[in-house]
Write a protein that binds this DNA or RNA. Structure first.
Length: 313
DNA sequence: CCAGGTCAAGGGAGT
DNA sequence: ACTCCCTTGACCTGG
């Protein structure tokens, strides 16, 4: 049963472990960073990295083999070089051990840098800041000894439209060349959740055809920005971009439907799931985005198992 | 100890 | 011009 189950993943927080203060999100505000500096950043990062290993072990125990790591593991990481952290040697060792444990358990680890990354921006300062942040992500994955491939993807959105999508897409592709191999080999792009930004089809033409990086197809986003394609057609278009690497899709359900609150945006994610993800028969890894995290993943397992039960009859 | 206000980044959208 | 939101709430302060 387990081996025919879809490979499901969840993002960043483990709600069960966070009750015991096991988390990889320890950070600080600017004022504290100014006061305490990289000594404190180092302490937080070391604790985060140690807990990452605990989360990986927990995942393995629960037969979860896909996990998105937090971008907050290293507070203010763009403000210093990792080697400058007083605990760097310990951090390096802990990262190596965490990556090893993931690899031994065949666990796919990925990242999703924040919405402030705008590789397409016409503003050079914004691009420089984006490159800096992406390089931090690449470095983290290198320290974990993860593959230089979209198997260990660093997934971002194109980022902006500026009333001139062709210009923005050209910028994105041009600036891609300024990244190191650590980032280039892992970078993927995800479709957006509003028509003013980028559908899977637009990414296929504007990014994949130009620089060949894979597309992460988010099914929920697709319903809000279809580009004129059906769910299945758009997803299959995205799957073509992955080559030998197993593709990733994102799945979430609408908070509106779940909560029936008027002011909830259609983009918002639900707490949990009530409909099983449909992969249209394709072998893909599914990153689940729901507030209840690993608990929602367990719910999804039940939904999938129930469907298999029905199908078997 | 806790509730409530506050908190890096860019851009889009709503008020 | 201002505020909220985004892949993710966590931090900090005053009581």
């Amino acid at each position: 049963m387990e081996d025919i189950m879809l490979n499901l993943g969840y993002a960043c927080i483990n709600t069960e472990l966070s009750k015991e203060k096991i988390t990889t999100n320890r950070t600080m505000i600017r004022k504290t960073f100014d006061q305490k500096g990289i000594t404190y950043a180092s302490e937080l990062a070391l604790q985060n990295v140690k807990d990452l290993k605990t989360i990986i072990a927990w995942n393995a125990k629960n037969n979860i083999h896909f996990y998105r790591m937090s971008s907050d593991m290293f507070p203010w990481a763009t403000e210093y070089r990792m080697e400058e952290l007083p605990d760097f040697e310990q951090i390096e060792e802990a990262m190596f051990q965490a990556g090893l444990l993931a690899s031994q358990n065949n666990m796919r680890l990925t990242m999703h840098p924040g919405p402030f990354n705008k590789l397409c921006s016409p503003n050079e300062d914004v691009v420089v800041g984006t490159i800096k942040d992406l390089e931090v992500h690449g470095r983290i994955m290198d320290l974990l000894c993860l593959p230089k491939s979209p198997y260990a993807k660093i997934n971002i959105h194109v980022g902006g439209a500026y009333n001139d999508k062709p210009m923005a897409l050209v910028n994105f592709c041009k600036n891609f060349d300024r990244l190191s191999d650590s980032v280039k080999t892992r970078l993927t792009v995800e479709n957006d959740d509003k028509d003013s930004l980028y559908s899977t089809k637009e990414l296929f033409n504007g990014v994949f055809k130009q620089i060949g990086i894979p597309i992460v197809h988010d099914q929920h986003h697709h319903t809000l920005c279809t580009g004129g394609l059906s769910q299945q057609d758009a997803m299959e278009l995205a799957l073509q971009t992955w080559g030998d690497v197993k593709p990733v899709i994102h799945y979430s359900q609408s908070r509106c439907v779940e909560h029936n609150e008027a002011k909830t945006k259609p983009q918002a994610h639900s707490d949990s799931y009530w409909t099983a993800v449909d992969t249209f028969g394709h072998d893909v890894d599914v990153m689940l985005e729901a507030k209840f995290k690993e608990q929602a993943l367990f719910k999804m397992r039940e939904l999938l198992a129930f469907n298999e039960c029905i199908a078997a009859k």
